[in-house]
Nucleic acid binder design. Structure first.
Length: 314
DNA sequence: TTTGACCAGACTCAGAGAGC
DNA sequence: GCTCTCTGAGTCTGGTCAAA
């Protein structure tokens, strides 16, 4: 009787495991992403496999396990709930498009405090064939999923566009167009209010360069006094000294480009608290959505349209 | 005592030949 | 062409061991 193995020249998992001095179980877990395997062991197994030319068989779904499900990871952390406001339509479109090709969407709530393995096992237990992640970015989780042959598609997260399929906001172009809009309104003294976004560091850089390009095209020199770094958190009752100093200077800006809508709201809140009117004394513009913090609509903050485009490995 | 890393052996899955 | 059976590859479960 013939063996299932058709090519005896190809190395087997057992042989790779023996070479790497681990059990076949451990080697299998390295490739499947299951279990707890140390970094050193993982590295040793992968390097041995690569050296021997071992190819891990794709996890072909069986008839029993073919679920036709796609996971949609959605942040439920309190500070990010505002994004649901403008994601509803996007999620509906994703679901409709997946339905057309016979796939069901499963929304999996995730938190930044949640461990990779817990999220991973949720996805595995639901037998999802692919994962969309909206805003949420966790390289360690994504690489584990892709090792398990589960493709990952990131939405609204520019950090990993060189590693995973990503659907990104064009932050550079958005900031450029926003600043141009202010220039077209006659503003020439435009400040930039930044903040540290540890979750999305590229966002800050891209938007700053978009702002800078628009000003450079008009040969307007960027004044260092106009660049403010702001700490997020609307609960702060202390007026921001940076805004006070900015507005009391010899040549205060007539408009501010804020990194995002939360920072815009904080800028608006601080400026009004220290006696300035918006847009009377200064205009504010920010990328994002109109927020409704503390039941106060900030309709005077102009929101700008952000074009979405496909980037990454497509 | 808990946690992480790993292993042994039982188990599942799926390809392929044999028999009808 | 369908079903049965065999078999190797890979996975899962439950356990051990060491370190914190």
């Amino acid at each position: 009787m013939k063996n299932k193995q058709s090519d005896k020249t190809l190395p087997k998992l057992k042989e790779v495991a023996a070479q790497a001095k681990v059990s076949p179980t451990t080697a299998s877990m390295v490739f499947s992403g299951r279990g707890r395997i140390s970094e050193n062991t993982t590295k040793a197994v992968r390097e041995t496999a690569e050296r021997m030319g071992y190819v891990h068989p794709a996890r072909k779904p069986t008839n029993k396990s073919k679920s036709g499900r796609v996971a949609l990871l959605m942040l439920i952390d309190r500070e990010w709930t505002f994004i649901w406001y403008f994601l509803n339509e996007m999620i509906a479109r994703i679901e409709l498009d997946l339905q057309k090709i016979g796939l069901d969407t499963v929304i999996i709530p995730v938190s930044h405090n949640e461990k990779d393995k817990d999220i991973y096992h949720k996805i595995i237990n639901l037998e999802c064939q692919a994962v969309f992640s909206i805003h949420y970015g966790k390289d360690s989780l994504f690489s584990r999923l892709e090792n398990a042959e589960i493709p990952v598609i990131l939405i609204l997260n520019n950090n990993y566009q060189d590693k995973y399929f990503s659907i990104c906001v064009d932050d550079f172009q958005g900031a450029y167009e926003g600043t141009r809009h202010l220039l077209n309104l006659g503003h020439t003294k435009i400040g930039f209010v930044d903040t540290s976004r540890e979750d999305l560091p590229i966002l800050s850089t891209d938007r700053y360069y978009g702002y800078r390009k628009a000003l450079e095209e008009e040969r307007i020199e960027i004044q260092k006094d106009y660049l403010i770094s702001c700490t997020p958190g609307l609960s702060s009752e202390n007026p921001d000294n940076s805004f006070q100093t900015l507005m009391e200077g010899s040549s205060p800006p007539t408009a501010l480009f804020c990194l995002d809508d939360e920072i815009a709201l904080q800028s608006w809140s601080t400026l009004t608290r220290i006696g300035y009117t918006i847009p009377g004394d200064i205009s504010i513009l920010a990328p994002g959505d109109v927020l409704d913090y503390s039941k106060t609509y900030i309709a005077k903050i102009t929101t700008m349209h952000i074009d979405m485009k496909y980037v990454g490995r497509l």
